[in-house]
């Protein structure tokens, strides 16, 4: 139908069944309660910061639960990566607002933690069911969370009424794809080390 109407169409053969990269889950409105669609760019960045904070806290809480020292170190590393993501968001927030929030003050005053991707911690663990003592499973879980986050930001951009906020969301979505690629490299590195 699309091709006949002049669209440039590619059929993904095998669809989701053959898709061996991280998938996203939930209905189109999954997680959108975090976004009204009317956020300013600063408010958008605040929500994204909170999502990264939620993920960082998740990694830190998982670190306490596992026994394997390699996995403990991996969770610390993943939590540290989230701080870098937050710094990028905070720099943009400060540039837009002309304010000078630090990570600590912004985390404490601006943002209540949420979970990246719009799923709760329990939902992530139920869907992905990782072996919490396996580094490969943990990196795979992290990649899946980034995929879910990319999906959420894409959907949030679609409902956004503020063009500047939409472009902020699209940029953050693109960054989530980069995070996925970085985690893919980490996975390869862990395989080489193992």
């Amino acid at each position: 139908m699309l091709a006949g109407k002049g669209y440039q169409v590619y059929n993904i053969s095998g669809g989701i069944k053959k898709w061996d990269s991280p998938a996203a889950y939930g209905l189109p409105e999954q997680g959108l309660e975090l976004f009204s669609g009317h956020e300013s760019p600063q408010e958008t960045l605040t929500v994204a910061f909170a999502l990264e904070e939620g993920l960082r806290e998740f990694y830190l809480s998982m670190r306490k639960q596992v026994q394997n020292n390699d996995v403990k170190q991996l969770f610390s590393r993943l939590a540290a990566i989230e701080i870098k993501h937050q710094e990028r968001l905070l720099n943009e927030y400060n540039a837009l607002s002309g304010e000078a929030w630090t990570h600590e003050t912004f985390a404490a005053k601006q943002a209540a933690p949420a979970m990246e991707g719009g799923l709760t911690t329990a939902e992530y663990l139920r869907i992905f069911d990782p072996d919490l003592e396996s580094t490969a499973d943990i990196v795979s879980l992290a990649m899946s969370i980034e995929a879910q986050a990319f999906d959420l930001y894409q959907r949030a951009a679609e409902i956004g009424s503020n063009p500047h906020s939409r472009s902020v969301l699209k940029r953050i979505a693109e960054e989530e794809r980069t995070h996925m690629a970085q985690l893919g490299k980490l996975m390869a590195q862990l395989s080489d080390d193992g």
């Binding site: 699309l2 993904i12 669809g15 989701i16 898709w19 991280p22 998938a23 996203a24 889950y25 939930g26 209905l27 189109p28 999954q30 995929a147 879910q148 990319f150 999906d151 894409q154 699209k170 979505a173 693109e174 794809r177």
Partner: peptide, 22 residues
């Protein structure tokens, strides 16, 4: 991601159970 569209033409419950990100 902005330069192309991924279109899922399945039913909502299939999309819910797993879809390509974006």
């Amino acid at each position: 991601a902005e330069s192309f569209t991924i279109l899922d033409v399945r039913q909502p419950e299939e999309y819910q159970a797993g879809h390509l990100p974006g």
